[in-house]
């Protein structure tokens, strides 16, 4: 039995959801992208201070994620308005989802939440069929980078080559 409070583990179906997202508040969720890998990047809050911080780095790395046909969704408990200001200031073009009603509900369903009810710093890669392929819980103050995501996408692509072979 998996720890009910821990981060969702590989092999489990990714819980379905939609949340209001940048830029226009439209509802976005992983189920809309079946047939493509989906990367969920849970993070505590917009406007954190480090140079090249996580969402900014992910925008810069988008061409590499797109090589695997992957969709990237950032998720925190910030509102769409806050997300929009953050996205504009950081040049972030991929959707940022507002997990704010009820606060942190989607993060909780993925086990990617803190005791305070905000999103933890966690990464989940969902395969094209909607199953969790990889997950990673980062220490709150450590930007987990892109390497783990790219390694997971690479393994997914290799597995598909073998099965379709």
């Amino acid at each position: 039995m998996t720890d009910p409070n821990g981060l969702i583990t590989p092999g489990r179906p990714a819980p379905g959801f939609t949340l209001p997202a940048t830029p226009d508040g439209r509802e976005v969720g992983p189920g809309q992208f079946r047939g493509r890998p989906v990367v969920l990047a849970f993070y505590p809050a917009d406007f954190t201070p480090v140079c090249g911080e996580q969402m900014t780095l992910y925008q810069a790395a988008m061409p590499e994620l797109e090589r695997y046909g992957a969709v990237l969704l950032g998720i925190s408990v910030d509102s769409v308005d806050t997300h929009r200001a953050f996205a504009q200031s950081q040049g972030v073009e991929f959707p940022l989802l507002a997990d704010d009603e009820p606060r942190g509900e989607v993060a909780r369903r993925y086990g990617a939440h803190t005791p305070r009810g905000e999103a933890a710093r966690a990464l989940v890669v969902i395969d094209p069929e909607g199953t969790v392929a990889w997950s990673y819980l980062s220490p709150m103050d450590v930007n987990p980078g892109v390497d783990g995501i790219l390694d997971a996408l690479e393994r997914l692509a290799a597995d598909r080559r073998v099965t379709t072979g």
Binding site: V50, G52, E53, A61, E64, G145, V146
Partner: peptide
């Protein structure tokens, strides 16, 4: 250079 960096876990500068 950039892609090699992200594969080595570079997460900022």
């Amino acid at each position: 250079d950039f892609v090699g960096g992200i594969r080595s876990g570079v997460n900022g500068t």
